[in-house]
Design a protein around this nucleic acid. Structure first.
Lengths: 149, 149
DNA sequence: GGATATAGTTAAGCGTTCTTAACTAACAAG
DNA sequence: CTTGTTAGTTAAGAACGCTTAACTATATCC
């Protein structure tokens, strides 16, 4: 049992459920916080890879330098980001989440975690152990794959 | 082992990796297809719950009737949606994905699945079996939770 | 020092989405 | 039949994000 085709079908179903949920979860949170998708996306990016310049941002978001600059500017005005001068290169800027921005993202992430936590609280001990083991395997595989790219 | 706190930490890490990946995946796909986020969101909604009226859409997207109507209109013009009259109530409309729209969403979903498939291909047989078992458990739990709400 | 490249900002213009308000058409109840 | 409700559309105006192009300031190379 558990050949490639079966596993593929299982992951497909899981992704289906999961994507459905995560999409609508994000949408609701963006609405609630008043953030647009690009704004939210940038905050997430900085949560994972802070301390980067405008060019890094524009490159990663697949957009122009001007757009990134304007986006950052708006979020700086809203006090969600801090934009400081790079001490080693005074042309460049270092963009980071502010305390307020970090707080907001942290809350968003924990709200999304709530769903998974609800999911696992209904499981019995045996099921929980299995889920825990599998998620560790998957997380490690994802990390490995990310490093490879 | 595997008490509640541990499991919670494990799911948190998994969500972290997974959300990070799925967010940027969708962003890229939306960019590639030229769809805006609301447009994309509506197509996904119709993929899961087709055959609904303008009011259903506006209610679910937490927006005004006018906005939903305009959004649908644009996607009908792009031939991604079909808008037909409800035979039982001629005031109402039935909105559905067109063949072209279905195709587009299907492709997006399969791209998303590709990542998970890459993830599991590197696993050995034992790990695969464990992952398969756990994902079945989680998918079932998610379905149950959804029915409860 | 002077030419060139790089990092980022600013401004004008376009397309999108949203809102409110006014409107049409169809249904429902007396 | 008339009154009121419901479903959806249309129009005007504001906000946002993106692009291109022109610009400032700093760094780098010869």
């Amino acid at each position: 049992m558990s050949n490639t085709a079966q596993l593929s079908e299982i992951t497909r179903k899981w992704m289906d459920v999961f994507m459905h949920r995560s999409m609508s979860g994000w949408r609701q949170y963006a609405k609630a916080t008043g953030l647009s998708m690009p704004q939210f996306s940038l905050l997430m990016r900085l949560h994972y890879h802070g301390d980067c310049g405008i060019s890094d941002i524009s490159e990663h978001m697949d957009t122009s330098n001007a757009a990134a600059s304007q986006l950052v500017d708006k979020l700086v005005q809203n006090e969600l980001l801090e934009r400081t001068e790079d001490p080693h290169d005074r042309r460049a800027k270092q963009v980071n989440l502010s305390a307020k921005g970090r707080e907001l993202i942290k809350k968003g992430i924990s709200e999304r975690n709530r769903w998974v936590n609800e999911l696992v609280t209904d499981l019995d001990a045996d099921q929980r152990a299995k889920v825990a083991e599998a998620l560790v395997i998957l997380t490690e595989a994802a990390r490995k794959l990310e490093r490879a790219n």
